[in-house]
Design a protein around this nucleic acid. Structure first.
Length: 269
DNA sequence: CTGGATTCCTGCTTGC
DNA sequence: TGCAAGCAGGAATCCA
């Protein structure tokens, strides 16, 4: 599930295509395009100015103002480069951007929870997103302000993309473990000290995730179609029944807000 | 406000 | 071995 560290890793690997010109776009599944401010043919011949990331969105901006391609990987989406002569005959390829540098960028997504946006103004999507967790603006004071008086589970709150953008199920569980806070705690019940811990834990776990080039639990691949490495460092996610790395008690799994959540009943209070 | 259910979808796992 | 059912989940949306 590409979350912030995965999309950041994809973005970094794709950056070598900055300055390349789009020779052609192939739309295999038209319904993968969620918003179509312009037709795909309209960007043929345009140059890629930048690859950026906001939350879990990858933003490809072109030299002609008001031409942006947004990619969201959803659950199982991949966005990777391939040499042009290499035939992409894989399943579930929905969208391909051919470049003039001998490469193409392929969007592949079996479950199709992901999508592509062709936007004049990316702010129409981006402006709804909450703070970037690795930016300064995401601080314990902000976290305290959003948990205040909220009765939802703290895990549900940090997964809310309108409050904090980029955290998904894996990094939510890992951050709460690091902060020693149970995921089903009511957000408003967090002490100031716990909010500070959680804020730090979120930043730490996301930075580690980026450092290890993301988590390949099942589907995720980076922009070179390579696996990530952070799955080797997961403390609780996907480890139900295994020993807690800190206290050796069994890690439990429980559904919270419709998501399976992994935590240690001894370490997390 | 909040939690829960539902929808989208395929592939993997489980049970018979 | 084969088949069907169950499950997983990011985000939007509806309902109680």
């Amino acid at each position: 599930m590409p979350e912030l560290p995965e999309v950041e890793t994809i973005k970094r690997s794709l950056a070598i295509n900055k300055g390349a010109r789009i020779s052609r776009i192939e739309v295999i599944r038209p319904d993968i395009i969620r918003i179509r401010d312009f037709e795909p043919e309209a960007v043929h011949g345009l140059t890629i100015n930048s690859f950026r990331r906001r939350g879990k969105y990858l933003i490809i901006s072109l030299d002609e103002r008001e031409s942006h391609i947004l990619v969201h990987m959803g659950m199982s989406g991949r966005f990777y480069m391939q040499e042009d002569q290499y035939e992409a005959n894989e399943k579930h390829v929905h969208f391909i951007i051919y470049l003039d540098n001998g490469r193409k960028m392929v969007f592949q997504d079996p479950r199709r929870f992901g999508g592509i946006w062709l936007l004049r103004n990316p702010d129409t999507i981006i402006c709804k997103l909450g703070k970037e967790p690795l930016n300064r603006e995401f601080c314990s004071a902000y976290l305290k302000s959003i948990v205040k008086d909220r009765r939802i589970a703290i895990k549900t709150l940090i997964l809310d993309q309108n409050l904090i953008s980029g955290i998904g199920n894996i990094y939510a569980d890992e951050a709460l473990f690091l902060a020693r806070i149970r995921p089903d705690r009511t957000a408003g019940s967090l002490s100031d000290e716990e909010a500070v811990r959680l804020c730090r834990a979120i930043k730490r776990v996301l930075r580690q995730g980026i450092e290890k080039r993301g988590t390949t639990f099942r589907d995720y691949r980076d922009g070179n179609n390579n696996r990530g490495g952070f799955q080797e460092h997961l403390q609780v996610y996907g480890r139900e029944g295994e020993e807690c790395p800190v206290c050796n008690s069994r890690i439990v799994r429980k559904r919270i807000g419709g998501r399976s959540s992994h935590y240690c009943v001894t370490c997390q209070k």
